[in-house]
């Protein structure tokens, strides 16, 4: 496997995959952190970020997954390399190596985003101690949906030569996911699609907001974590991986 991963690295040299991933991460961070840091942010910053960032993650991380999966898989489609590779190595292993390599890039980006967020809070001296437990949970609840979405995108990009199919499927899913976060009255909607799980696993809510007083009496508080659907998401990820791997192994290249 190490040899295959090294091959993946060599194939992607000079392809600007890492700069692309970091550029998307940088845009996401700018989007999140740009603006004046006022008293409100310093007072509620730690929890405010945990409330706001899942939505931004739902916009950027599925797109990051789409782009990286497509770039990695399209290398083989473009060079018509699949037939050659499948003669040299077991198909399952090829699928796994590419998946692992892509997941590595995605994980680095998620860690980077998380670390910059924490550093931003510390540098700006957000009030109260750094809630490490909550932020570790946030990290897990960001990483796991991204990994599952990446597995889905990877499968599509490996199976279809036409990368537009993977992109369009991803974009429509992402669209439903983002919209579902604005419709808390329809909780089943966000649970139905992979892209909605950033919202399902959001555990900080805004309370006290009314149409009359708006943000005057509003505050951020913890909400119960939906562990059942966290398990459902992990199961969905495993199932997608198994189905994707099976389909790739059976596919005519």
């Amino acid at each position: 496997m190490i040899r295959l991963l090294k091959c993946e690295y060599l194939k992607t040299r000079h392809c600007f995959i890492f700069p692309t991933a970091f550029a998307i991460t940088a845009i996401c961070l700018c989007w999140c952190l740009y603006g004046d840091v006022d008293d409100e942010i310093i007072k509620y910053g730690w929890r405010m970020f945990l409330y706001q960032f899942p939505l931004v993650n739902a916009i950027f991380l599925p797109l990051l997954s789409m782009v990286i999966a497509s770039r990695l898989c399209n290398l083989e489609h473009k060079g018509k390399m699949q037939k050659l590779l499948c003669c040299m190595e077991k198909r399952g292993k090829l699928f796994d190596a590419k998946l692992l390599y892509g997941l590595g890039i995605i994980t680095v980006c998620v860690v980077l985003m998380w670390a910059v967020t924490v550093i931003f809070g510390v540098v700006n001296r957000f009030l109260g101690p750094f809630p490490i437990k909550l932020y570790l949970l946030y990290f897990i609840f960001t990483l796991i949906p991204t990994v599952v979405i990446y597995i889905f995108q990877h499968t599509l990009s490996m199976l279809f030569k036409n990368q537009a199919i993977a992109f369009f499927t991803g974009i429509i899913g992402e669209f439903i996911g983002i919209f579902s976060m604005f419709l808390p009255s329809l909780p089943f909607l966000r649970r139905m699609v992979l892209w909605g799980y950033y919202g399902v696993l959001q555990f900080v809510g805004l309370f006290g907001w009314t149409k009359e007083s708006r943000y005057e009496n509003a505050y951020f508080d913890l909400m119960p974590i939906d562990w059942t659907f966290f398990c459902v998401l992990i199961c969905a990820g495993i199932l997608l991986y198994l189905i994707g791997r099976y389909l790739f192994c059976k596919k005519e290249v």
């Binding site: 036409n162 537009a164 199919i165 369009f168 974009i171 429509i172 669209f175 439903i176 919209f179 579902s180 604005f182 419709l183 009255s185 329809l186 909607l189």
Partner: peptide, 24 residues
């Protein structure tokens, strides 16, 4: 090419969810 399907399907999502949001 199947890409026209996306252009047909995509506007249905905001139409449906936007309307639900409007009603809410």
């Amino acid at each position: 090419s199947p890409i026209w399907i996306a252009f047909v399907l995509m506007p249905i999502v905001p139409a449906f969810l936007g309307t639900v949001n409007y009603l809410g």
